[in-house]
């Protein structure tokens, strides 16, 4: 199950392992379409953690990471940003980035 993150717990959530941070917005259709794909990836890959940030509520995190489009996926490895996808992406594109981080 994905973890809901906010400005208070975000650093704690991303500090270990491979983490996909999904910056989404409630009103965003591409985000709604991406959601099941991301859930599938998390389910099928036990080493991947999915963290979701609702930009409607956590504008400060979006600002900190200079996220200006929804959805934006930021890939972290042990707390360090290692990749980013803006807009929608295919499952295979996401897995490709993950595989590089393994």
């Amino acid at each position: 199950m994905p973890v809901k993150a906010n400005a208070q717990n975000f650093d704690e959530q991303i500090k270990e392992g491979i983490v996909i941070a999904d910056f989404y917005s409630d009103s965003c259709v591409p985000c709604k379409r991406m959601s099941p794909i991301l859930a599938e990836i998390e389910e099928e890959n036990s080493d991947i953690k999915l963290v979701k940030i609702n930009v409607n509520f956590d504008g400060s995190l979006a600002e900190k990471y200079e996220v200006m489009a929804a959805p934006t996926l930021i890939f972290f490895a042990d707390g360090e940003e290692r990749g980013r996808i803006r807009g929608t992406a295919k499952k295979s594109d996401i897995l490709e980035i993950i595989n590089k981080l393994r």
Partner: peptide, 17 residues
Amino acid sequence: LSKGISFCAVCDGSFYA
């Protein structure tokens, strides 16, 4: 594009509160 320019107001509007 995606750094302040958007083609979808309902997607990206919330970044501009």
